[in-house]
Structures are given as structure tokens and as C-alpha cells.
Simulated assay, not measured.
Amino acid sequence: MAKVTISEDDFQKFQEYFYRKTGIQFDTAKRYFVDKRLVERIEANDCDDFRSYFTMLRFQASGAELQALVNLMTINETYFFREEYQFDCLVNSILPELVARKKDRAPIRIWVLPSSSGEEAYSIAMCLLERWPGIVQWDVEIISSDIDTRILAQARAGCYSERSIKHVPRAYLQRHFRTTADGYQLSDDLRCAVEFTRVNLMDAADVRPYRNFDVVFCRNLLIYFDDLSRKQAAETFYDALVPGGFICLGHSESMSRISSLYKIRKFPEAIVYQKPRETP
């Protein structure tokens, strides 16, 4: 079988298709990255060329190949306690404000995406256990979502390298991890504290069930979207949040440049964004 090549026209067709499906747009600077992974999947499916593979990809009823491609194309770069000041903000400012106005005893619901390999959601769970006195009185649900099924399986397993845990306080490491042959594994209790789900943020049917969240963490995802996809994501989060709910973005992201739906909240620890509360 001759070596498969990806032409400029092939790249553009794939670029447009992948953007429509995921909201992620690869520019020409990512050609080598995209081409390499496309060729890998073309060969894995015994297709003769890009054209036959692309036809299969678009019309496959199960969507299994698209998912396999998504798993290859998405970038999962994270570690425990990344941008920790936002976790301090959650514990010291956001949660006290939320519980002060909660009229019922419904659980506090937190949505984290992208999940990647789980470090962010598990960091939140650890912060609540270690730093928030309210955890004794309040039930908390943490749901962490990603489009990549392979990385979600890793997150559920809770196994991490030395690099991933480099910012975990020593006391937390002793209490919540056990050493393994390859690194560390999170305790069963903490792994059970987070529910991991597969979600495509650009798919209306996927996100429709996600409602009534008090806090959303969506950090360093929107930088991979264009303006239109960012606006769509902002509207999705708006629908997912309760009135008065909060969203935390990455340090280089600004909701003010994306959508006028939210108001800026400047807490001592961090700037976050809030869905306005309904008028009484």
C-alpha cells in the first residue's frame, strides 16, 4: 500500500468538518500534528486514501471513528492544583456567597470541563474536603466532562505520574494517594466523589441535560475555539447555571470579550463571571 498523503484540499475539508463537529479549529500551523494523526487513522481503517476514509468518517452510523479521531486530536495538558488561586476563590468567596442565599438544601453542583485526566476535578474535591468547613453541612456534586473517551477512562482510574502531583501539598498526598509501581493512585473515596461524563460542548443534544449548576470551571478550553464557538459555549454555560451561578475561566480567557450575558465579579482571590440573579 502506497504511503498516504494529505493534500491542502484534504486538510481544508477535514478542518471544516472537525470544526463543525467539535468547535475546535486547527490552523495551518497545526498541519503536521493533524496530518500525522489522520494518516494513522486512515491506515488503521485500511482505507486507500483520505477520500475513502473521509467518506467513511462522515457516514458511519455509530460515530465510533469520529470518537477515535477526537481522542487523538484533543490535547490534555493539566496537573493538580493548576491556577490554585481559583480554588481559593471557590472556597473563600464563591461558596460562602452561594450557601448564604440557598433557600433549600439541594446539593451544590459543580461542572468541570474539559475533564482531561481528572486533576482539576479531583483538586476541587480535595480543596473542599481540606479547606471548606461547609462540606460538613452541604452535599456537593462534582461532574467532570470531556469529549475524549480515552482520557475519561484515565480520569476514572485516578493514576498519576510524579509530574501531575508536583503541586499537591505533602499532607494531601499522604492522606489521599497511595504509591504504585508507576506513580500514585487517588483514594477510592475521592475517585467516587467525581462523576465523569462524555460531552461534546458543541452538540445541543449532549449539553441539554446539564442544568442547575452553581459553579462551572471551564479553564483553557475556549482558547481552542473561534469567536462563534466561544459565543455558543458561553450561551451553553448560561443555560447550565442557576441564576447567580459562577463560571471560572483560564487566566488568559475573558468572558467580557465573548458575551455580554455575564457580569464580572472581582473577588480578593480572582476575577470570575456570574450569571445575573433573577429579579425578586
Results as ranks from 00 to 15, higher is better:
M1V: 12
K3I: 11
T5L: 08
S7L: 11
E8R: 15
D9N: 13
D10Q: 04
F11G: 03
K13C: 09
E16S: 11
Y17Q: 07
Y19K: 13
F26V: 05
F26N: 02
D27H: 14
D27C: 05
T28G: 07
R31C: 05
D35T: 08
R37E: 00
L38F: 03
V39H: 04
N45C: 12
C47V: 01
D49K: 08
F50T: 08
F50S: 05
T55P: 00
L57N: 10
L57T: 02
E65N: 05
M73Y: 04
M73L: 15
N76A: 04
T78E: 06
Y79V: 06
F81Q: 05
Y85C: 09
Q86P: 02
Q86V: 12
F87V: 03
I94A: 10
L95S: 05
P96L: 09
D104C: 01
I110E: 07
W111V: 02
W111D: 01
E119G: 05
I124M: 05
I124W: 03
A125R: 06
L129T: 10
R131S: 10
P133G: 13
D139T: 13
D139R: 12
I143W: 05
I143H: 10
I143C: 12
I147C: 03
T149M: 04
I151F: 06
I151R: 09
A153N: 12
R156H: 11
A157I: 07
G158M: 04
G158V: 09
S161I: 05
H167A: 12
H167V: 08
P169M: 03
P169D: 00
R170S: 14
R175P: 07
H176V: 10
T180F: 08
T180P: 13
T180H: 06
A181F: 11
A181C: 07
G183H: 05
Y184V: 00
D188I: 10
C192V: 01
V194S: 00
R198F: 01
R198M: 04
V199H: 02
N200Q: 11
L201R: 07
A205K: 11
A205G: 06
V207Q: 01
R208L: 11
R211Y: 02
F213N: 00
D214G: 01
F217R: 00
N220F: 11
F225H: 08
L228P: 00
T236Q: 06
D239E: 15
A240S: 15
F246C: 09
L249Q: 06
H251K: 13
H251D: 13
E253W: 02
M255D: 09
S256W: 09
S259N: 09
L261R: 12
Y262P: 02
I264G: 00
I264K: 14
R265W: 10
R265E: 15
A270S: 15
A270F: 09
K275C: 00
K275A: 00
P276G: 12
P276W: 06
P280C: 14
P280D: 15
